[in-house]
Design a protein around this nucleic acid. Structure first.
Lengths: 211, 211
DNA sequence: GGACACATGTAACGGGTTACATGATTTC
DNA sequence: GAAATCATGTAACCCGTTACATGTGTCC
């Protein structure tokens, strides 16, 4: 019946619809709010997905009137709910991280010190933005302002994940920036410093283990 | 001259070539070794990229003989080096993380407790794999075994980043698993626990800040 | 003799991004 | 009257993935 196999993004939308019905526009906002940091997608994409779900019988659409303005509201069907449950029971693929900043540091010795510092600042800014976002979200729930009180437990897990990763990354970035500021030049390694930092990072086990 | 604008992946290859010449096969291995966790690409892709670089005048290819077996070895040109430097000086785009495990937790209340636990385990496994990989890499450099001693300083930064993130994620995942094991059911939130965990994660500021 | 590493691709497909487009309603 | 938000898309492009394909050399 469905012309195309569902993608993870389809299930992401379906999961949102399982919480409550949304208009396409609200869906786009929710995607930014809930998924931006761990399942980023361009908003323009979001206008085709729900239609695919409807075609597959997993969602329904109805016209609603918001004042004088028409909008399409999507809701999940029973088949949609069981499809979502089936998906939740499947294997979980590994995470995928794409960090250009990492590349800039990897090849940092071929550029300037400032290039490396800019990459570090980018990593720090990203981490700050993520922490901030989730601290705010978490704050709403602790104050009882959370939009979906019955989702507080899963949100607690995700908020603590994002904040833990964000804080760790920020701490690393700040220390790294201070260190790099003291570099002579990006092309010239300070071997003593590097070895100390490596030992610090990997601990005794990594330093002595056989290859 | 070049038929297509270079992608970040092109520059990733170019950066590798700036370190030393590689055959395509070695390049594929190196991509796995150096980029797997922060710039993952399918290996089959890697056989087209260097040719594009040659077409753009940023790299050269020559035939070499490894015993009786022929192979194509690519090396960077002067133009390639300056192109790389220019790229290093451009703006750094934000990181992009795609985590299906995150989605499984986000919609965890619609599935089973076991679904959530499997997602947590996946996150933990990913983090362990990353830590291990970078601990090993770091170990080589502290022992003086590192393949490129003049790159020890940038590698020290990256190893410490990966290990710091890996450790933070592992700690979070282990705690989360222990907590989720105590859940009654994935659909039923333990509000007291959730609030405590949120407060723990966001600290006093997030809890009291005005919206 | 078999397994494994070396070595190098091609073809088809597609999900996703970028850029563009349009217009109504509300708020200041 | 302007700006911001609401609201909903389309078209073109393409980078990247999956799956497939093929053969050699070396080691045990």
């Amino acid at each position: 019946m469905s012309s195309r196999r569902l993608t993870t993004t389809s299930y992401a939308i379906l999961g949102l619809l399982a919480t409550r019905p949304w208009s396409t526009y609200e869906l786009a906002n929710q995607l930014r709010r809930a998924l931006h940091f761990f399942w980023p997608r361009a908003e323009s994409n979001l206008y085709a997905e729900p239609k695919r779900l409807v075609a597959a019988g997993l969602a329904e659409s109805r016209e609603e009137w918001n004042g004088d303005r028409k909008r399409t509201v999507y809701s999940i069907t029973d088949r949609g709910r069981s499809s979502l449950e089936e998906w939740l029971a499947t294997d979980v693929p590994p995470v995928r991280v794409e960090s250009e900043a990492y590349l800039r540091i990897l090849f940092g010795n071929m550029g300037s010190k400032d290039d490396v510092l800019r990459a570090l600042r980018r990593i720090e800014d990203d981490a700050v933005a993520m922490s901030r976002h989730y601290v705010q979200l978490g704050g709403e729930y602790t104050r009882g302002d959370g939009p979906f009180p019955d989702r507080i437990h899963v949100n607690a897990l995700l908020v603590s994940l994002a904040v833990a990763q964000g804080k760790a990354t920020q701490a690393w970035a700040r220390a790294a920036r201070a260190d790099v500021e003291r570099w002579e030049d990006a092309a010239i390694p300070d071997v003593d410093w590097a070895v100390k930092r490596l030992l610090d990072a990997i601990g005794e086990d990594g330093a002595t283990a056989a290859p």
